[in-house]
Simulated scan of single mutants.
Amino acid sequence: MAIHASPRVTEILAQKYVEPLRESGEFAHEIVESLRAYVDNQMNIPAAARSIPVHVNTLRYRLRRFEELTGCYLEDTSTVIEVSWVLEVFGRDL
């Protein structure tokens, strides 16, 4: 409900997390897939890697690339909450 009631928050989060990914072209889709798996699997990297399926090192690389592009850290609870918000709004269309 908050997502639909707060379009300004969505806009801010899109600038923070979506725009930097767009620089990566097609690789952005792989980063998004990895983020979704990471969040959906309670930040458990081996489980997330199995769910997509990719090697754990591939998943780690993609997540690290996300952090580099956005300047955010996935160990930060606030980042995970905000990324979850963005994934909910944009789905697979980042």
Rank of each mutant, 00 (worst) to 15 (best):
L63D: 00
A14E: 12
S51H: 13
P46Y: 15
R62D: 02
Q15M: 05
Q15R: 07
V9P: 04
K16F: 00
E67R: 04
E30I: 14
Y61W: 13
F66I: 01
F90S: 08
V89M: 00
A14R: 13
D40G: 06
L59Q: 09
A2F: 11
P53G: 09
I3A: 07
I31A: 00
H4K: 15
M43V: 00
A37E: 02
V80F: 00
W85N: 12
R62C: 13
V32H: 01
P7W: 03
L13W: 07
Y17K: 03
L87G: 12
D76T: 13
R50M: 15
A47Y: 12
Y38D: 03
Y38P: 08
H29Q: 15
S34W: 03
I45Y: 12
E82K: 14
E23H: 04
F66Y: 07
H4W: 11
P7C: 05
I52S: 15
N57K: 07
L63H: 02
L74G: 01
V80R: 02
A28S: 15
P46G: 15
R36Q: 10
C72Y: 06
E88A: 03
P53D: 06
D40K: 07
P53V: 06
F27L: 10
E88R: 02
R64P: 01
R36D: 13
M43S: 08
D40H: 09
L13Q: 04
E23I: 05
Y38M: 03
K16A: 06
V56K: 14
A28D: 11
R64I: 10
E11Q: 08
S84V: 09
M1L: 12
L63K: 04
H4Y: 11
G25V: 05
R62S: 09
V54G: 04
V54T: 00
S51P: 08
N41D: 12
V54M: 02
R22A: 04
E23Y: 01
M1A: 09
F66K: 05
L94S: 06
A2H: 08
L69G: 07
H29D: 11
H29M: 15
V18Y: 07
L59D: 04
E75S: 08
L13A: 05
T70M: 06
A28M: 15
M43D: 00
K16R: 08
Q15W: 04
V80P: 05
R92A: 02
V32Y: 06
M43P: 04
G25W: 04
W85S: 11
D93G: 03
H29R: 15
R50H: 15
S34Y: 11
I52C: 08
H29E: 14
R62Y: 10
I31G: 03
A49S: 06
D40N: 06
P7Y: 01
V39Q: 09
C72P: 03
G25R: 10
V86H: 06
E30S: 15
V54E: 01
V89H: 00
Y73I: 03
H55C: 08
I81S: 12
N57C: 06
H29T: 14
F90C: 12
P46V: 13
R60K: 14
T77Q: 13
G25S: 04
A48L: 05
S34C: 15
M1T: 14
